[in-house]
Design a protein around this nucleic acid. Structure first.
Lengths: 356, 356
DNA sequence: ATGCGCAGGTAACGCGCGTTACCTATCTGG
DNA sequence: CCAGATAGGTAACGCGCGTTACCTGCGCAT
């Protein structure tokens, strides 16, 4: 499989960039004319004929504009920067994806800078500052700052030099606009789905109760129950570590505590990893999903939700959408428009699969 | 939660970049002197005193070099580009992460371009070409081309204008250097682990037998068995769809076909998703992992392997390492060094968890 | 006094392009 | 026949910086 031939690689004589001047000469016009044609200037008066000659020259010579030079002259880089933990979080990717696509539509480029520690505290802060610094050196016109889980963050000072939007987090200092998931609405829709399926006794496997995700989702759950004239039994809310093991243990506790009659008929797991563990606990007890116990998750971690058996019905975190909205907001901001709100909530859609 | 205050955003008067000239004036020297100091020029003769004055001016004014202008003047952008499907694959991220980190070490920037369809065939080819085009407009000095699963690809022509390295795929046209996982060695180590644990009858849940991953891993498995004086029973190799469902079905087939005595005592699943399905089949039959049946996977998809119960022992695909190696290879290439081989194999380490 | 080397700088060009000011030839209306 | 508009361009500056060539004193040996 491994060949040992030494590669002489692209002998392709790396031609020293064709410039606009070359194009101009080839077409027998001035460089200015070329510039006008390439940038589709409105009020330029260039005859159709020369325009065609120029375009042909571009083709023939394989001219490719030099983005750097263009940025220098026009004072606009056409770039946005995004700072985020790349790999720590499977989520970050979807945000990037959404932002990337939107940027692409706007004919902009997204410069992605790593930040292994997106918190402004901690040992790696230097890294993050350096990343932002690098982005600013590239003269990005705006900054996106994305976190891997919904929380408050402290954004480095330097981010103030350029319009900045936070994604999946909010400014603990309250200055910068942010885009976050509507956790409350998500919690509500999850429980509404269970109610609609006829469940009245619903167990909740909770996260660390202090984080925004837990607060919001639980509040939403309460609202949905209240609408149905029910209350959330505090006994049925058990905290768990945000892992599969945590979900397993919490589910065991909740399942073993009651007789078959009193047992909840549905479990709302505040994230999919915990749902994964809950599945095990349920199956271990010879119970069927969703026959005996329905399960609904949160987050829509594809790798889990779509591969569990039965596939997990869950509420999706709208990462791509938030990414796209981030870029849009940035675009508005850089265009000088006032933004609508300091915090934009993005809905979390229910994803029907087979566990309810 | 959602405030509706209208944000006036960073009133921070976007100061029109401090330039080297400003620094020079402030320090009472010429711009050249500043340039010399900032670029740590070897044979420049600048007194310690003026050097200090200049550095102070940089601090005071908050000077930040303009990367674009620098690139223009020096004819070196300091950028590499990477083309990959960003989100389709959870894998791509790790490659990017590895490449990003290595690039960061080399004081280079990684420009990430989306390519929703990394295959050179298909409807989205235009997108990919455009992405490469954009990267070249940014004057990247080298190109990385990463695939989400190990396979042969056709790289667009334009990539030839600049040194290019393929990651997790190889050039079907055989020109470009590539970096791929050593599937064979990986398959070998997996089976060796099972043999070491005393297993003699090993079932294999296979992938699509035509892809490099299947070919290599299976070959490695055979080698390991041969070393132990055993042969791979063709009956024990069952093909499956590369999903949890596929793994479930294949495992059912293999488990139900034999009596308890003839049944394999271990399952080598050629990817983790299938292992996930196999878990269900095994548990359903009241069998214990690894007590009754040991399971070993491949890929090390964190979200699955680390969260299954028991945690899955698996062979890791070295994505980060491949990414880093890609950048290193590119660096060597751009420095004009001949590369070692057209294809570099990267080892797949065994990750011990609890399923063997 | 002269020559010479060296520390400590500076002037000026060019990188590739956007953009503004200006110029010329041709047509049109009065 | 001439003023004025318009089509079809061009010359030249500046964006911020790297880099090369050159300049100016000053100490020192001749």
């Amino acid at each position: 499989m491994a060949k040992t031939t030494t590669s002489n690689h692209a002998g392709a004589a790396r031609q020293r960039g064709v410039t606009m001047n070359d194009v101009a000469k080839h077409a027998g016009v001035s460089r200015t004319a070329v510039s006008f044609v390439l940038s589709n200037r409105e009020n330029a008066s260039i005859s159709e004929e020369t325009r065609a000659r120029i375009n042909e020259a571009v083709q023939v010579l394989g001219y490719r504009p030099n983005a750097g030079a263009r940025a220098l002259a026009s004072q606009r880089s056409g770039w946005y920067g995004i700072v985020t933990e790349i790999v720590t979080a499977p989520f970050a990717v979807d945000i990037i994806k959404g932002a990337q696509d939107q940027a692409w539509l706007d004919r902009r480029f997204l410069l992605i800078a790593p930040s292994d520690q997106a918190d402004a505290v901690g040992p790696n802060q230097g890294m993050e500052d350096a990343a932002i610094e690098k982005l600013l050196e590239q003269r990005v016109e705006g900054l996106l700052y994305a976190a891997t889980y919904h929380r408050g963050v402290h954004v480095p000072e330097s981010a103030n030099e350029v319009p900045t939007v936070l994604i999946n987090c909010f400014d603990a200092d309250g200055r910068l606009p942010s885009i976050v998931p509507d956790e409350r609405a998500g919690g509500r829709v999850a429980v509404e789905r269970l109610l609609q399926a006829g469940h009245r006794r619903i167990g909740v496997i909770n996260l660390d109760p202090d984080i925004p995700a837990a607060v919001g989702r639980l509040a939403g759950a309460r609202e949905a129950l209240a609408d149905a004239g029910l209350e959330l039994d505090p006994q049925l809310v058990v905290p768990g570590h945000a892992t599969a093991d945590g979900g397993y243990e919490a589910a065991c506790e909740i399942l073993d505590r009651y007789t078959e009659k009193d047992r909840p008929t549905a479990l709302f797991c505040l994230n999919d990893r915990m749902a994964m563990g809950a599945y095990d606990a349920i199956k271990e007890r010879g119970l069927a999903i969703p026959g005996d116990i329905a399960v609904i998750g949160f987050d829509n971690q594809e790798l889990i939700a779509a591969y569990l058996r039965p596939k997990l019905t869950t509420v999706a975190l709208p990462f791509e959408k938030m990414g796209a909205l981030g870029v849009q907001t940035l675009a508005a901001l850089t265009a000088g428009q006032p933004i609508i709100a300091d915090q934009q909530l993005v809905g979390c859609p229910l994803l029907e699969r087979s566990s309810v």
